[in-house]
Design a protein around this nucleic acid. Structure first.
Length: 888
RNA sequence: AGGCGCGUAGCUCAGUGGGAGAGCGCUACCUUGACACGGUAGAUGUCGGCGGUUCAAUCCCGCCCGUGCCUACCA
């Protein structure tokens, strides 16, 4: 192996390992195994385009879980795949074609679909490249796509079964129509936005009287489709008009005045409501209650149709609004215009205002499926983390409405329904297999079928993902082993779109919940807290960051920032900081390797007597392992990452490496022990860190491997560290902490009175007891080296020498010889220390003077406060004495 | 309108019913044989405001202010 480079190069290291891991089959899950299964199916990214930084977060979290569990000995399956994303993908391809002046209608269905497949292939290739750049350990052998043959079969199977169970039906209902994409949308695909608009007051003359009934509306153009005016039946102003006819302005139609207590709020507007059952959800219901005709006045692309007077035909709906308002005004029907703010549904994908329209569509009876899905979360079969999302889920599920699943698109699963072509025949065929010559129409006996032109909502197929990807409807071994999936890791923004529907479909078709745990990750925002979006231009391509800082640093940063239930604001500075962490780790390892040149073969702790510093780092290593495991088991990724960071940088590098230098220089068994503990610690660090930073840990672990016994070929399949892997020495570790505190105290004095690092100082210590004296004595070398101390004396009766500074520690008093010229600085330093201690003492004494505190607080707490007070008092006294004797 | 969340150091954010933390930034000193992508030491906070519960509140409760998100067919 080549010598280790002085600085870490992510480009070099990250290019080295991934393909080998895949080729070795480390990511491949066994369909059958003695090991316990652990399964995550990837939330399939859309093949619209590229992965963004949010994907990098979700992939990082999943990979951390999967690599952790793999190293813990589970039979892990992380199943990758992509989603055809019906509307979104069709739209981007249409937009692309439009730039060349071509529409999908110019091409026709077949050729257009060829175009979409081409787009899909390109996007998919890029997505795979991005995933590999992030070093994720998915089982590529099991990759799926929602339009795969197998998944398409699952979709048909589900459709047919639900149809046969009466849970899928076709009906003429009021739906949300996107005039831009010319398809119906589900409720979830409609985004409500507040608009500054107006309330137009329009007068409708009452037939046979000179009374005019004034209605208020936000959509004057729809008056051309009005079929009634409603008033509250108890409204004294209008009740006498109920049953009369009004003349609809701009038309020659007469429409009735009706009374409807449910829809009309007499307080609002004028108290009279125009009813347009063809273009409003409420009005549709009113119309149904009163048997009113439904007039659709708009075409698919929201232009006025032949139901309106000739003058208005062909106008776009917002143009029509202006013309209608102008005409109303000219003809004296416009009473007033009021400024008005209201919310209007917009098409999530295209951004245009959604048009409520009556249309014949396919629906899923959601309530029936929602019941068991609701219970499963209520009784804990599926657990949400963070738990707060359960309430959101309950709320939506309890009020769930039927799910419109047909879409007037070409890209997707075509609905497996065929209509009989015989004139006047209404026979239909619904089947998993296409009908053939032998498939006779049950109504007329003919065998001439035409398939429904529409496709299914993308989420219909996504809802099956946890089992369709495992081979359902076949009873595969994969399904048996990996269903229910262990964890679903996804974003809360698709809790209804996806999670809820997977719950419904999973339980209905598999008889069991699709996953035991749902972990909702945070939303990644930019530094300013803005949601990242292409239109804002603040998206970051993960590939760019991987190129800049490496996948390991990016992954570690994302893990560190992802606190539960909170957004991630990604700052570039922060990523830089963690890139430096990777370099720090690299150099710590480099130090270890540089000091192993006299070693052959594995090193083990057996038969060695670890020195106090060794005992300290081994104990802290064991602490770290316990903390990281606890964090990962509890989905607290930021905590796990920061525990690792603290341990590697601030314990292993800051202290242990420095302490080990002494032992290494000494040679003999001390050197051998230090070498062994260095190897042991680094091994633990690398394995604990591997799920977060797979590449650098593999690189370093491979170099460390000659010194480790009985390990596999790759860290990927090595064991995750466990508590108890290394021996603990709690007492010794605590004693060592005192040594470290003493060194810090000496450094603090030096720095504050400005003794330059090049100058050595003498130190005299009065220990608090013989044990303290003993272990300080044992570490005189370390204290000398790390504190830059030349004479180090421990004396139970020591007095402060002239020209010495004083540091008071709980376990010792420490005099640092700084020279007479720095006495002024020392006095200042002491006064500052005194002030700080006094402030602390004040707070403590306030508590102790409170009889209720002594009375009611737990004994331990009171004791602790007393001890604290005594220590502070003692310290202040000593510091005071020092100041006095220095003449301050 | 209802629901959920957030407000902690200059910035980005952790955290806990008993002495306020991290990273970055900032200040001083240091080319100490792993690392200047570094080392050592340090400064910085009415923990949004007002009340309440408690011996004790940054943490629990209420109200208010600011801010973000989700759900919702009042013209």
């Amino acid at each position: 192996m080549e010598p280790i480079a002085k600085g870490y190069s992510h480009r070099e290291v990250e290019a080295r390992w991934y393909d080998g891991w895949v080729d070795a089959g480390y990511f491949h899950a066994e369909a059958q195994s003695d090991k316990d299964p652990y399964c995550i199916v990837i939330p399939p990214p859309n093949v619209t385009g590229h992965l963004h930084i949010g994907h990098a977060l979700t992939l990082t979290i999943q990979d951390v879980l999967i690599r952790y569990k793999r190293m813990c000995g589970f039979n892990t399956l992380w199943l990758p795949g992509t989603d055809h994303a019906g509307i979104a993908t069709q739209m981007v391809v249409e937009r692309d074609l439009a730039a060349k002046g071509v529409s999908r209608f110019d091409l026709g269905r077949r050729k257009f679909l060829d175009e979409v497949w081409r787009w899909k292939d390109a996007a998919h290739a890029h997505i795979v490249k991005q995933m590999k750049a992030l070093s994720i350990s998915v089982d590529w052998d099991r990759e799926r796509f929602t339009l795969d043959e197998g998944l398409s079969r699952a979709v048909r199977e589900v459709f047919v079964r639900l149809y046969e169970e009466g849970l899928i039906y076709r009906a003429q209902k009021m739906v949300n129509w996107s005039p831009a994409i010319r398809t119906v949308l589900s409720d979830l695909e409609v985004e409500e936005k507040e608009l500054e608009s107006h309330l137009w007051h329009i007068a409708y003359p009452v037939e046979g009287t000179d009374v005019r009934l004034v209605v208020a509306t936000t959509r004057p153009e729809t008056m051309l489709g009005d079929t009634a005016v409603a008033v509250h039946p108890e409204d004294e102003r209008y009740r006498h008009l109920i049953g009369k006819q009004v003349k609809l302005p701009l038309t020659d139609r007469l429409i009735p005045v009706i009374g409807d207590a449910e829809a009309v709020d007499p307080e609002f507007g004028t108290g009279a409501l125009k009813i347009t059952p063809g273009h409003d959800f409420t009005d549709f219901e009113v119309g149904r209650r009163h048997g009113l005709p439904v007039i659709s006045i708009l075409t698919e692309d929201a232009h006025l149709n032949d139901e309106v007077p000739p003058k208005y035909r062909g106008l776009e709906r917002f143009e029509a609004r202006e013309v209608v308002v102008r005409d109303l005004e000219e003809q004296g029907f416009l009473v007033s215009i009021e400024d008005y703010k209201h919310v209007v549904g917009h098409c999530q994908r295209s951004g245009v205002v959604v048009e409520p329209t009556v249309s014949l569509q396919w629906f899923v009876k959601a309530k029936t499926l929602a019941g068991p899905a609701l219970d499963a979360v209520r009784n804990g079969d599926t657990v949400f983390i963070p738990k707060t999302w359960e309430k959101t889920y309950f709320n939506w599920m309890e009020n769930i409405r039927d799910w419109c699943i047909s879409r007037q698109l070409w890209w997707g699963h075509q609905i497996p329904v065929w209509y009989c072509r015989s004139p006047g025949c209404e026979g239909i065929y619904v089947g998993v297999e296409d009908p053939d010559e032998s498939t006779k129409c049950p109504a007329c006996g003919a065998a001439d079928w035409k398939q429904d032109e529409d496709v299914l909502d993308t989420w219909f197929s996504s809802a099956l993902w946890p089992f369709s990807t495992l081979g359902w409807p076949d009873e595969t071994r994969e399904l048996k082993t990996f269903y229910p999936n262990t964890v679903m890791e996804t974003g809360f923004d698709i809790i209804f779109f996806w999670v809820a529907r997977m719950m419904m479909m999973g339980i209905h078709f598999m008889g069991e919940v699709p996953f035991g745990t749902v972990y909702f990750h945070a939303m990644v925002r930019d530094e300013a807290g803005q949601k990242m979006s292409k239109t804002k231009g603040n998206v970051i391509d993960p590939l760019e960051l991987v190129d800049e800082v490496g996948a390991d640093a990016l992954r570690f940063t994302l893990a560190t920032l992802t606190a539960q239930g909170r957004d991630v604001k990604l700052s570039v500075d922060r990523i830089q900081g963690y890139r430096e962490f990777v370099n720090k780790l690299w150099n710590a390892a480099r130090f270890v390797f540089m000091n192993l040149d006299d070693v052959e073969g594995p090193l083990t702790l057996d038969g060695l007597k670890p020195a106090p510093a060794d005992r300290w780092i081994l104990t802290r290593l064991d602490d770290m392992v316990a903390a990281v495991r606890g964090a990962l088991d509890g989905f607290r990724f930021n905590e796990g990452a920061s525990v690792l960071y603290q341990f590697v940088w601030h314990r292993f590098c800051d202290w242990y490496l420095e302490l080990a230098k002494g032992a290494l220089a000494e040679g003999g068994p001390r050197r051998r022990t230090a070498q062994t503990v260095l190897v042991t610690s680094l091994d633990g660090i690398l394995r604990a860190l591997h799920p977060f930073m797979p590449n650098v840990t593999e690189e370093l672990w491979q170099r460390l491997k000659p010194f480790l016994a009985g390990r596999p070929d790759s860290i990927v399949v090595d064991a995750y560290p466990m508590t108890g892997d290394v021996p603990r020495f709690d007492e010794d570790a605590r004693a060592m902490d005192e040594v470290l505190d003493l060194i810090s105290a000496v450094r603090g004095v030096r720095s504050q009175v400005q003794v330059p690092p090049s100058e050595q100082v003498g130190v005299l210590v009065r220990p608090g007891g013989p044990e303290v004296a003993a272990h300080l004595d044992m570490h005189r070398e370390d204290i000398r080296r790390l504190g830059r101390v030349d004479g180090f004396v421990i004396d139970a009766d020591a007095q402060r020498p002239d020209g010495a500074a004083l540091a008071v520690l709980p376990f010792a008093e420490c005099y640092v010889e700084i020279g007479a010229e720095r006495i002024e600085a020392e006095i200042a330093r002491l006064n500052k220390a005194i002030a700080k201690a006094r402030k602390g003492l004040e707070g403590v004494e306030r508590k102790l003077e409170n009889p209720k505190f002594i009375d009611r607080a737990p004994e331990q707490v009171v004791q602790k406060e007393r001890l604290k007070a005594a220590e502070l008092k003692d310290g202040i006294q000593r510091l005071d004495e020092a100041v006095r004797s220095l003449g301050g």
